[in-house]
């Protein structure tokens, strides 16, 4: 009689535990960030994810890179870098793309002018994806300065590099 009670009691406990676990996982946010803002700030510290066009060209000769073009398909169809994969920015969090972003191959995010690629880099890195980089200046700079004019100085494009001495210009 006592054994019968114990088995019944055990069964009830296991059932309740399973229900609680199911409810708990159902409420977990699949889009929550892996890193807090403070942790993300530390990851931004060295800014090594930013590639000037020249650094991008060099890196491409040294290792396998996947170029992820974040622009909409129309712009992508009009012009894209060799072997680039088009994933429009609004799709980057799609569950179907998780296995792709979790691969170890370095992915270089590219957009029209570098701004949105940098934003998506922050978002995806904070979300937990690793091995992501950004092409500075985006396709616009690439087309204007790298492919058309082939001026060496523009292959060194860095968004945060002052283009003039601000203080000097204001003194003029």
């Amino acid at each position: 009689m006592q054994k019968k009670y114990l088995f019944g009691f055990g069964g009830v406990m296991v059932f309740i535990a399973l229900v609680l676990i199911a409810i708990s996982f159902d409420h977990l946010d699949p889009y929550s960030f892996r890193y807090s803002s403070n942790e993300m700030l530390e990851k931004m510290d060295d800014q090594t994810h930013l590639l000037s066009p020249q650094e991008f060209i060099d890196l491409r000769t040294q290792q396998d890179l996947i170029i992820v073009d974040l622009r909409d398909p129309k712009l992508f169809a009009a012009f894209s870098l060799d072997s680039a994969k088009n994933i429009a920015a609004e799709r980057v969090l799609d569950k179907s793309l998780k296995p792709f972003f979790q691969t170890e191959t370095t992915k270089v995010l590219v957009d029209q002018d570098g701004l949105q690629a940098n934003q998506i880099w922050v978002l995806l890195t904070q979300f937990g994806y690793e091995n992501l980089m950004v092409l500075e200046g985006g396709i616009k700079n690439w087309q204007e300065k790298v492919e058309v004019t082939t001026l060496d100085k523009f292959t060194g494009f860095k968004d945060e590099k002052p283009q003039v001495d601000f203080a000097e210009v204001m003194k003029k």
């Binding site: 931004m44 800014q47 930013l50 570098g114 701004l115 940098n118 934003q119 922050v122 978002l123 500075e136 860095k158 968004d159 945060e160 590099k161 002052p162």
Partner: peptide, 11 residues
């Protein structure tokens, strides 16, 4: 200077 640092701060 560009938009890189400012947009990271904004994010």
């Amino acid at each position: 200077n560009g938009t890189t640092l400012s947009v990271q701060a904004w994010m």
